[in-house]
Design a protein around this nucleic acid. Structure first.
Lengths: 196, 196
DNA sequence: TAGATTAGAATGATCATTCGATCTTATGGT
DNA sequence: ACCATAAGATCGAATGATCATTCTAATCTA
């Protein structure tokens, strides 16, 4: 997840993620990050401009990583349906595999603490664009109902986010059958058919 | 939203909500709450045990209020389909009408800052229980596909949460047609039919 | 005039950030 | 091969600001 950073930066980013999820941003002090990461406060400031900078870098790293993974899934598919399934599958897999990163993005994607410029930079390089295009194409081919494609993507993302949240909070288990069932149900929700 | 509190408490809760949404919890200082609410710090501590207490009380107040509204919608309907539509409509209306409350709950429902006991207390008095039962009934009557009802409710809630989030961030407008379209699409996603 | 309410300065803790010193590493001259 | 030296990396104590909370005195109310 942090391959593009050096050892010290990796330690700081990983530790910060860990503490934020465990104790909230406001309880995440530089002293604590220093202690848990094994990097002195002085040295942290050698690699990061400020605390804000650490958190924004963390955000950037995770969303970029997720974007690459999901785009990879989208490219693997050939038909629209295949791309749909592979793409969303990656989203869910990422949430299961990196729960802390998932929770962090969930909590901070709408937070004023993350700079607008970072959010934008990351949105364009993420997976939303390609997914929006996929939906657009599906509408053009009369496969999906004529709804705002961006809205559909957001809604489907919300579906999986809450499925993952509930799973991470132990409300229910998430078998591969229930995942594919959920994806299929989303597909059904937006494909054209006669009954209303 | 804060009918059960006195004038001072209302001012403090409203101001706190406002600042938290604008500036994050960590930038929400008692001094700022005092200044913006017109209540001195000393007096705030006359009505609240601590800062944590204010935030938890805020959480409780909003979720309780939302719970009452949505349960009211559920009771108004007679058929399952009507209850489904009226219930989710209330959820969306609440988000549109009280965007700050909506955002606050969204950000803090999974935060360690809110006591587990408050989350639990509020969950039982909220709308999740009645909605779960509605889904359970729909499954029993072979109207819905045989999926974990709690999971379905979470997924549908996520759908509307992200629709609202995108709307609040100006990605698209939310007409009453697109809202009812979204609800219909959720209904279609889980009702039984022949095509896969 | 007693009790409840309000005010805001005082307190002590904690925090982000800075700074000067020490340690490590890489380089180049002998 | 060996050392001198400079540049970068690391450290943790010091700094000054800010914060949650407390306390005492003032004000209101019934």
């Amino acid at each position: 997840m942090f391959e593009n950073y050096n050892k010290v930066q990796q330690a700081v980013l990983e530790t910060t993620l860990n503490i934020i999820i465990r104790k909230e941003l406001q309880a995440t002090s530089m002293a604590l990050i220093a202690k848990e990461s094994g990097v002195s406060t002085g040295n942290i400031y050698h690699y990061f401009k400020s605390k804000e900078d650490i958190v924004n870098e963390l955000y950037k790293a995770i969303v970029t990583f997720n974007g690459e993974q999901v785009r990879g899934g989208l490219l693997k598919g050939t038909t629209i349906r295949e791309k749909f399934e592979l793409g969303w599958n990656r989203v869910i897999e990422l949430g299961k595999q990196y729960p802390q990163g998932f929770q962090f993005i969930e909590q901070y994607s709408f937070s004023p603490y993350i700079y607008e410029e970072v959010k934008l930079e990351v949105y364009t390089g993420g997976w939303c664009g390609p997914m929006n295009e996929l939906y657009q194409e599906a509408i053009r081919e009369k496969l999906f109902i004529p709804m705002n494609p961006k809205m559909m993507v957001q809604m489907h993302y919300g579906t999986f986010v809450y499925m993952l949240k509930a799973h991470l909070h132990g409300i229910f288990e998430l078998s591969s059958e229930s995942v594919s069932g959920a994806i299929r149900s989303c597909w059904n929700a937006v494909t054209l058919r006669d009954i209303t």
